[in-house]
Amino acid sequence: MNFKGYDKNFSLVDKVAIVTGGANGIGKAVSELYLEKGAKVAVFDLNPNVEKIAREMSTQHAIGVQCDVTENESMESAIQKVKDHFKKIDILVNCAGIALLDDAENISDEYWQKTIDLNLTGSFKMCQKVGRVMIEQDSGGKIINLASQAALIALDNHVAYAASKAGILGMTKVLAYEWAQYNINVNAISPTVILTELGKKAWAGEKGEKAKKEIPLGRFGYPEEVAAIALFLASDATNLITGENIVIDGGNTIK
Rank of each mutant, 00 (worst) to 15 (best):
A228I: 00
T172E: 04
L33N: 06
G21M: 02
G221E: 04
T196V: 02
L217T: 06
L240C: 00
Y177F: 13
N24Q: 15
A180Q: 04
D7S: 13
A166M: 04
C95S: 12
I135H: 11
K88H: 14
E32Y: 04
G38D: 13
N9H: 14
A104Y: 11
Y6L: 03
I63L: 12
A180V: 02
Y182T: 04
L33S: 01
V159D: 08
N145K: 04
R55L: 13
G27H: 07
D68W: 04
I107L: 03
Y177S: 12
I215Y: 09
E197K: 13
V19A: 05
N145R: 09
G141L: 00
Q128S: 07
T20I: 01
K81N: 10
T121M: 08
K114M: 05
L46T: 09
V41H: 08
Y177P: 03
Q128L: 04
K210H: 05
E244Y: 02
L152Q: 11
K83H: 14
G251M: 05
R219P: 02
G170N: 11
E71M: 10
S123H: 05
E51W: 05
W112H: 06
V186Q: 11
S139L: 06
A228R: 07
S123W: 02
K40P: 11
N187R: 02
D249T: 00
A162Y: 10
A204Q: 13
G167L: 06
I189C: 01
I135N: 14
I189M: 06
Q149L: 14
L100H: 09
G27Q: 06
I107S: 01
F232W: 11
G38V: 02
S164C: 06
K207I: 08
G140M: 08
Y161W: 12
A62W: 08
N24P: 01
E197V: 08
L146I: 15
